[in-house]
């Protein structure tokens, strides 16, 4: 699994660049490279449908984010309780990673067996739905209501953006 480690290290480095870059446009480009790395990781983890979807969604969100990068980042300042806030944030991250280490210590990557539902889906996909791609069989047959909810969420997002970005307000 050396490939997935390399890609994850690349993603962490690109994310740090995205967080710390002064120019907002370079920050947006760095977040785009994190998304492309995630697409490659999906491909290595045997999820080709997700890799395609992540690529498309990444390009769309990049185009939307470029619209919002009008100015430079704010200058660095240490006003307020800067030392205390940064120290508590780093402390919380250390506690989080330590707890994750204890919890995940004995779980190997790629072990384990299917859950009951996954086994049923895998065994009955061809006789029940006729689809050779099991993920497509799940999203568009077994769990079609999920996909319907996804479409409803996109519709709600579009309506919300139109309501927020509308120029004319209520007349006073």
């Amino acid at each position: 699994m050396i490939e997935i480690h390399l890609i994850l290290l690349f993603m962490i480095a690109a994310a740090i660049v995205a967080v710390e870059a002064r120019d907002l446009l370079s920050s947006v480009v760095a977040i785009g490279s994190v998304g492309i790395g995630l697409s490659l990781a999906f491909l290595i983890l045997k999820a080709p449908d997700l890799a395609i979807m992540q690529l498309v969604v990444e390009i769309m969100s990049l185009v939307i984010l470029v619209r919002a990068t009008m100015r430079q980042d704010l200058p660095f300042s240490m006003s307020g309780r800067w030392v205390f806030n940064t120290f508590s944030t780093v402390l919380f991250m250390c506690v989080f990673l330590g707890a994750a280490y204890i919890a995940l210590k004995n779980i190997p990557l790629g072990g384990g067996d299917f859950g009951i539902a996954s086994g049923v889906y895998l065994r009955e996909a061809i006789p029940a739905t006729g689809a050779k791609n099991v993920v497509a069989a799940i999203t568009s047959n077994y769990r079609l209501m999920d996909t319907l909810g996804e479409v409803a969420a996109i519709f709600t997002a579009v309506v919300g953006v139109m309501a927020i970005a509308r120029r004319v307000g209520r007349p006073r």
Binding site: D49, M53, I138, T147
Partner: peptide, 10 residues
Amino acid sequence: DPLPQAMVMT
């Protein structure tokens, strides 16, 4: 396992 892939797609 195909079920997490279907969930993550949403």
